[in-house]
Computed example of a mutant assay.
Amino acid sequence: MRRFRRLRQTPQMRSFVRENEVSVKDLIYPLFVIEGSNIKNEVPSMPNIYQYSLDRIDEELDKVVAAKIPAILLFGIPEHKDEKGSGAYDDNGITQQCVRHIKENYPGLIVIADVCLCEYTSHGHCGLVCEGHILNDETLPLLAKMAVSMAKAGADIVAPSDMMDGRVAALREALDEAGFIDTPILSYSAKFASGYYGPFRDAAGSAPHFGDRKSYQMDPANGREAMREIEDDLEEGADMIIVKPALAYLDIMKEARECFDVPFITYNVSGEYSMVKAAAANGWIDEKRIVLENMIAMKRAGADRIITYHALDVARFLEEEDV
């Protein structure tokens, strides 16, 4: 009889043989910057997550830096929205202003700029719209223009999340032509049309005003298709890959990790965050234990880094564990 329990007898022994660990270095924290002044709006469906105006965002950035979280993922919420999402590629747009502010005041922080039109369009879709149809090829030049604008502002990484076909190639070509050959592309390659995004759309003001996003985001039933999406984006020039959402798609992360030798990031999305927070608020679960268990599940599945709204909590939990 094998005695597996020999290696489980004490905390020290369990730590000694542990196969996977979560570190604060693994964390990427999403932030929402909103146009205006003196704004700190809590997102009702996401406890402890806020929209910050540029003059108040240091309140959160100071916490991120103090926690030694290495990177943030930035989403912008403009005051004006139009059918073409012009605020997305305005060099003086709210997101570009915020990127410059962060790089000037927090130069050690890695800034990942989300590249998508949905927060900037009056209709809430991720691409141009004509007679109710989301246009693919006509959207690509605007996404490319947005990526270049973010790189000019100082973004360390651009992350296309729109799910238009061919967008990675369009971004890579535009970035290279503009002289940003060293700016990496972190592609949301396996982004599923998930019900877990609801609270994010409250936070970013990006809910579509008609229809849904199922014609461009992936069908949750399809796993093999995700591998084709990832392969295509890598061939087009993606440097890193996102699988989104995280918890219901750990099988996708696991298979992708086995198929492709590139950095993988998973996005622990808003609905996953809010469910944990709601259950913890009701006393139904041990929040710290559940959050850390979720994080280790993502690492075990193969994620190199984790985008999560829990990031500040995780940093605190890990510090408590080390005491």
Rank of each mutant, 00 (worst) to 15 (best):
F4R: 07
R5E: 12
R6L: 14
R8H: 13
Q12S: 14
E19Y: 12
N20K: 07
V22D: 07
V22M: 13
V24C: 07
I28N: 01
L31K: 00
V33Y: 03
N38K: 12
I39E: 04
E42W: 02
P47F: 11
I49E: 06
L54S: 05
R56E: 02
E60H: 12
A67W: 01
I69H: 01
A71E: 11
P78Q: 11
E79I: 10
H80G: 09
K84D: 10
G85C: 01
D90S: 11
D90V: 13
G93E: 10
I94M: 11
I94G: 05
I94V: 15
T95M: 14
C98E: 05
C98M: 08
C98T: 12
K103N: 03
N105K: 15
G108L: 03
L109F: 08
L109M: 11
I110R: 13
A113C: 12
C118P: 04
E119P: 15
S122W: 02
G124E: 04
I134H: 09
I134F: 01
D137Y: 03
E138D: 15
L140Q: 02
L143G: 02
M146Y: 03
S149G: 14
M150W: 03
A151I: 01
A153Q: 06
G154D: 02
D156V: 09
I157S: 05
V158N: 08
A159I: 00
A159H: 07
A159V: 00
M163I: 14
F180Q: 04
T183P: 10
P184E: 03
F192D: 11
G198Q: 09
A203V: 13
G205M: 00
G211Y: 12
M218S: 12
M218K: 08
E225V: 05
A226K: 10
M227G: 03
R228S: 08
E229Q: 15
E231T: 13
D232N: 15
D233Q: 13
D233Y: 14
D233I: 07
E235W: 11
G237C: 09
D239V: 07
M240K: 10
K244P: 14
K244I: 01
P245S: 06
A246G: 05
A246M: 03
L247R: 02
Y249L: 02
M253Y: 07
F260H: 01
T266P: 03
N268E: 07
V276Q: 01
G283P: 10
W284K: 03
W284F: 15
I285F: 01
K288Q: 04
R289N: 11
I290T: 08
V291Q: 11
L292C: 05
I296K: 14
A297L: 00
A301M: 04
A303Q: 00
A303L: 00
D304G: 07
R305W: 00
I307H: 03
I307D: 00
L312K: 07
V314L: 00
A315S: 12
R316K: 15
E321R: 15
D322G: 09
V323F: 13
